[in-house]
Design a binder for these strands. Structure first.
Lengths: 248, 248
DNA sequence: TTGGAGTTAGTCAATTTTGGTTATTACGCT
DNA sequence: AGCGTAATAACCAAAATTGACTAACTCCAA
């Protein structure tokens, strides 16, 4: 619940304000907050004691609007959540991952074309982000860190562009999808291994390292993972190094 | 609904099979499919005519299991969805984005420490992914494109690592968050601009450009923003431009 | 041979999310 | 003054999602 964060910023607000703000920067896209959920969220947060109702104004015969503020308990919770997201890697969802896992379902030439197209799209987006950052409109009245967020988008996309083209080349080159001996058998046993892809950022749920400290744990010379990635273990217990079950 | 894709792969399956498979590669992490949703999804897809019940076996007194197969309508739908995700950029959600937008809520030194820590974490993850790819266990019995997906993770992360360190440096250097003249005013008018970040890949919902074409639209010379950043509008009417608190 | 640990297959109530709907007022235009 | 459109401020029923739960079977060890 990052609605809480918003209420904290905008202090006394009513639902519609939150909704406007959220929609204004189309947060329904990159967060997952649809306008319909807002009132429910506000009420839920209130009943959890994280928010409190500050006032109930009424203008004319319009629906009365309730304004909310944050409680100190809410402030704590917010700090906690915030730290959690700053210090740990979160689950990213990207549907393209899911789609890519069905690679063998596409004809080779389409796959590589799509990848090259993806690279084009990413470049176009990057260009327009860069253009937007140059063009004064955010030079003076927008906080700097908005630009920084765009740069993150750009940086990630740049990595991805290279990948798209490398992989497209591989596909064009006819690199086989399956390690020879695979014949026909369980054609779908394919992913199975995606496991690790997600397993990695498992770790022992390291929430909130220490809410007010600067360098929370290791002395900066330490390069091995703080508490979670343990870079040497590589492949832990795989569910089964074999093809795991695989009935008919 | 990418459950459909699974059923397509594994042809006659019953819910539990799907569930096992999904859990096995912890798809509940990187997609968003919790085991509880599966049966509902199967039934919904069936009633939409994308799947059909193939049989209803019963073993002993255990709950009868219904096996599903895909219909030709379902096949079409699947192809459509697949193409959609391959040819368009999808909405990525990453909670870190949301968290980062609250940057000014953190003390500078914590922010930069957290970013450097993030870089460390990303590096560690990358190392272990790379290690996993070397170590034979996926050399022979895992399809090649699983490795490719990992490489995508790595490529993106590499971009992000650089960003983390650049930004951490900026923060350490004391670069101000707000463009001077900002004083106090609407401290939260901050993001507002995140708009564009998501608006970008809006476009006119270009679903499936043409399943066999290569270069879909613009001639790559286009450098001004495609349809979106409209760099003039900024902070609208604030309900109350006062200081908004920061109460305890 | 019993007990308990795990597997199989799926259900279900409670919570969440969603997209549309309501009902009033403000504004713009002729 | 009259009319239509947009903004305001929410509500709500329906759909989706969730995590916990059931309940029978299997299989091995004590």
């Amino acid at each position: 619940m990052m609605i809480l964060g918003l209420v904290r910023w905008m202090q006394p607000v009513h639902g519609y304000d939150v909704r406007r703000e959220l929609l204004s920067w189309s947060a329904d896209k990159w967060a997952n907050v649809q306008p319909g959920s807002i009132y429910h969220a506000l009420r839920k947060l209130t009943e959890e004691g994280l928010l409190r109702e500050v006032a109930t104004e009424q203008v004319g015969a319009r629906p009365a609007r309730v304004t909310y503020g944050i409680t100190s308990k809410g402030e704590d919770e917010f700090q906690g959540l915030l730290r959690g997201h700053w210090w740990n890697l979160g689950e990213v969802v990207d549907p393209f991952f899911a789609a890519f896992s069905f690679l063998p379902a596409l004809p080779r030439d389409e796959a590589s074309a799509a990848l090259r197209n993806r690279a084009r799209l990413l470049r176009a987006v990057n260009d327009s982000l860069r253009a937007a950052m140059e063009s004064g409109w955010m030079k003076d009245d927008k906080p700097v860190h908005v630009g920084w967020m765009w740069q993150l988008s750009i940086a990630r996309a740049e990595g991805e562009i290279g990948w798209c083209e490398r992989i497209a080349d591989l596909i064009d080159a006819g690199v086989p999808y399956l390690p020879e001996d695979y014949a026909e058998e369980p054609a779908w046993a394919q992913f199975g291994t995606l496991v690790a892809e997600a397993t990695w950022h498992g770790g022992p749920t390291p929430d909130r390292p220490s809410p007010d400290q600067s360098s929370p744990d290791q002395p900066s010379s330490n390069q091995s993972s703080p508490d979670q990635p343990s870079p040497e273990r590589s492949s832990r217990e795989q569910p089964s190094p074999t093809v795991d079950g695989e009935r008919t």
